[in-house]
Write a protein that binds this DNA or RNA. Structure first.
Lengths: 344, 344
DNA sequence: CAGGGGTTCTGTACCGGTCAAGACGCAATC
DNA sequence: GATTGCGTCTTGACCGGTACAGAACCCCTG
């Protein structure tokens, strides 16, 4: 059976193709009676609606938005925090009449999602500025909003107040009386090396800001932290680094880049017979669901992931509508649970 | 600045538009030397490559595949099992040169992702046959592969061997000596009602099959189970139903629809002072990461989510390539951990 | 030297819609 | 009664590519 197009319907009803188009896309442009007849003919022929690809070309809008990632999807959404972000973003876009398309880094040859997929705009999640994907999107002049990074001047960004959160976390430890404090920081994913080589520290926005925040408080108190690095994955990386930190220093408290690091450290402490918070205080970051489920529940810095996602979508929608928007910085709050206490 | 198209480049280089198109899409159709010149001119003009929307219309393929969901994305990927499926599917598609677009049920007016988004094919995840989205996709004649359901005759499906897994789980309890066995089954999401009204049971494929499997073993042993229903969400639903089950019957073991149900039941048991597995044996399903992290670690039926995702993508790719494929049923295996023991 | 076959490039017809402007009829306005 | 205005429908151009059939050219063969 031949393909059904606007023209088939137009021929059947005896009107112009444009009128059929209007019946679907701009109902106010024709009489209700004729529209009914057209729609009836359409269903009779098994026509579902204007072809999305053709419409996209003609209208210049596709109705879907890309989410640019700097890793494979499995890695990107391995933890609950990023999975929640994805979900929130997808739902918020959907509510705006937009679908979400995942743009992972290319695997293999010839196909570069950020270059070859039709999208109206893109959310850039946790990608550093040199990511190839960002380059493609820029050249295509696709409107972007970045999340958890600050990629380009003039590109709206959604961040959390990492610095203030980190500062509060460090201050919390200081207030409890800790003076020998460790930091479990994030290592650059591309640079393997010893956890003590601080030049390998990740230069991602959250890492930079959190480090600044910790130092805000520690420097003011004259405390020099013991810094160690761990890769974000695998999970045991943080555990191993944590064990080394605990074994080679006499820190009584540790500030962690993320809750996952904190959980790893928790395991390290357990394996070394150090009780938390009795012998060791631990502060996480993010308020990952895992942090309240751990034993003991973690003191951490809470960020509102869902709000971050919705805000990003809001910025994107405004940008698409031509309303210029500034960067947004969402608040963070210290959540004190049971993994911190005064030093022994 | 004017939009750069194939024609702009063609004019600049002094060749036909078609040749420029070939330079990008079919390098073997022109000399290497000319191709270099064209590509150089293209970069000079800031041309990134053929416009995806236009290409999609002309080629009849968009390069992206939809994932049809029967709930919002937040709900769909709330647990680790489905999140892993999403991630695996996305990565497997990416490896095949395809992007993934999420097709959630419409929210609000006018925009129906399954109808209005340009896709080449769709994966249908855990949607029952009446889902509106499936109807759109069918009318659009978009190739589909279903996951965890068996929607249509002739539509390739990927399922796990729910029945054999459930049978093994039930047999395991029988082998341990249990004779008073409960079942925590899944309630239809659309039908609220008491957990004892068995007519409200979900008619999803996994539920039907698991029930059959449990009965395979139980019937053969002459055991009549105590069945209760719980909604998949919120998590406390299973806990409440579990509490009711434990309070009103004298079951010594319970077969759960999923690990999340098992975790809820675990909490219920704890709150009633019943020790697991001393006073109560619990078997889950799926081998959710949560199941090995729980205390005690859960005996459960393992399925390979990643394999399921990859298989589905394989079926889809074959279907797109015109190679007809049959339904696939992946194996399940019983994993005995510490939540099951002989009755007291 | 005619003819076959390969490479390289071009011309034309689509792909299936939407946009913007115009034509037509009819009621309201002056 | 001519003008204006509105609702309704049509016309023609265009969105930015790709498929396919051929034309021009070169080399090789018999």
């Amino acid at each position: 059976m031949a393909k059904v197009t606007l023209q088939s319907i137009a021929d059947k009803v005896g009107v112009s193709r444009m009128t059929v188009s209007n019946a679907f896309s701009r109902p106010d442009q024709l009489s209700a009676e004729l529209r009914e007849r057209i729609l009836a003919a359409a269903t009779e022929l098994g026509y579902v609606g204007p072809d999305p690809a053709a419409r996209a070309l003609a209208r210049g809008r596709t109705g879907s938005v890309g989410l640019l990632l700097n890793e494979g999807v499995s890695e990107s959404f391995a933890d609950a925090v990023s999975a929640e972000l994805l979900a929130t973003v997808a739902d918020a876009l959907n509510a705006e009449g937009l679908a979400l398309t995942l743009l992972a880094p290319p695997r293999g040859d010839g196909f570069f999602p950020a270059r070859d997929v039709a999208i109206d705009a893109a959310l850039v999640y946790s990608c550093n500025a040199e990511t190839a994907g960002i380059g493609w999107l820029e050249k295509r002049q696709i409107p972007m909003v970045t999340i958890d990074e600050n990629v380009r001047e003039g590109v709206p960004a959604v961040n959390i107040d990492d610095r203030a959160g980190a500062r509060a976390a460090a201050q919390h430890l200081l207030d409890l009386g800790h003076t020998r404090i460790g930091i479990l920081a994030l290592q650059d994913a591309e640079k393997p090396g010893p956890s003590t080589d601080l030049s390998l520290i990740s230069d991602s926005y959250p890492m930079r800001e959190r480090m600044l925040g910790w130092h805000d408080a520690l420097d003011a108190a004259g405390v020099t932290p013991e810094v160690r690095l761990a890769a974000y994955r695998p999970l045991v990386a943080a555990e191993e680094t944590g064990r080394e930190l605990l074994a080679s220093t006499d820190v009584t408290a540790v500030l962690c880049f993320s809750d996952l690091f904190a959980v790893g450290l928790l395991r390290a402490a357990e394996s070394l017979g150090r009780s938390v918070p009795g012998d060791l205080s631990i502060v996480g970051f993010d308020d990952n669901p895992a942090s309240s489920a751990s034993r003991p529940p973690l003191t951490t810095v809470r960020q509102d992931i869902a709000e971050k996602g919705r805000t990003a979508v809001g910025l994107l929608v405004d940008t698409l509508a031509g309303r210029a928007r500034e960067a947004v910085r969402l608040p963070t709050t210290l959540v004190v649970r049971d993994s911190t206490a005064p030093p022994a």
